[in-house]
Computed example of a mutant assay.
Amino acid sequence: MTRRIERALVTGGAGFVGSHLAELLLAEGSEVLVLDDFSTAAADTVAELRERPGVELVRHDVTRPITVPGRVDVVFHLASPASPPDYLRLPIETLRAGSLGTAHALDVAVRADARFVLASTSEVYGDPEVHPQPESYRGRVNPVGPRSVYDEAKRYAEALTAAYRRECGANTGIARLFNTYGPRMRAHDGRAVPTFIRQALAGEPLTVAGSGTQTRSLCYVDDTVRGLLALAKADLPGPVNLGNPEELTVRELAEEIRAAAGGSAGLTFVDAAEDDPRRRCPDITLARRELGWWPRVSLAEGLARTIRWFEPRREPTPEPSSVFW
């Protein structure tokens, strides 16, 4: 089934991924209602959204009930702190966004008879023992570690979404997003790509967490939001992995960014974060088969686009620098 989306609600729509999703929806001819409390949104992204025709931007905390007048065809629930410094700074808020926020967004979808799409995360797999990670893998998560506020918030959100599907007949889909990167990431959000780019452009050493042998798979943001839209237009309940199955080490990523950005300094190694996953790579067989989706933007091209976006926005690196991913 391919559904027509005349009006979409995007919670967390002023954030990095949410703003790109809103932009894609506009390009598809949809009206977009963006709900965001702006706690982790970049000011220039918010300002840009305000200027876009077809976007209604509303400040709202999703942990409070959501009232949406008029028609809604799809509810995309992205509202949550997503970078480690943010969710470590806002642990209770992160858990509430995953619990109360998901319930309130689901209630909107049920009342409007709308499709509901949850933006979950590869973090539900924790530090995996199965590689690459298929959707059937149940994960290996520390429920009381510092990262658990994000991991368990998303795991609960998935459970709640599945319960609404079973008990309320809600039309739901769950997407597990793997490491997404691209323009509009905040330079100091603590994740590897913006940190490495900022440091390389400043001619400073790139700070690599741990040994740098831990792996990640990076998906360019345009590909990620295409996947979310494909899931919205389908009836697949998921969960479905949306990520790039090309795996590389964090050290390799640092070296690639340094070369692409013209950096000349070396690498500096810092302590790894607690519960930092050693390997992370999606099995996207389901997304290919059911959604006809796979990443199209190569790492080289995606990094080039991201670096071009960061170049006029370069700024000095604060000390000390912490890197997560």
Rank of each mutant, 00 (worst) to 15 (best):
L236I: 06
P316W: 02
G292L: 07
T207Y: 14
V240A: 01
D276C: 10
P282C: 04
L201H: 03
S211G: 11
R258N: 12
W293Q: 05
S264Q: 09
L286Q: 09
S298F: 11
G263W: 01
T268D: 07
D223Q: 09
F269N: 08
T213I: 12
E246K: 08
E274P: 00
V225F: 02
A259N: 07
P312F: 06
L291Y: 04
D222T: 10
T207M: 13
E247A: 14
R314Y: 07
C281K: 07
R278K: 15
A272R: 10
A230K: 04
A261R: 12
L236R: 04
Q214V: 05
R191H: 06
E290N: 02
V193A: 12
R279S: 13
A287R: 03
C281E: 11
A254C: 09
P282D: 03
P295A: 10
T195S: 13
A300N: 14
R288M: 02
L228A: 04
V297R: 08
L231I: 01
I197E: 08
D275I: 01
R305G: 01
R280H: 00
E301L: 10
L201Y: 04
P282A: 08
E252S: 15
R216D: 05
A202Y: 00
R313M: 11
T268K: 08
L253R: 07
L242P: 04
R280C: 09
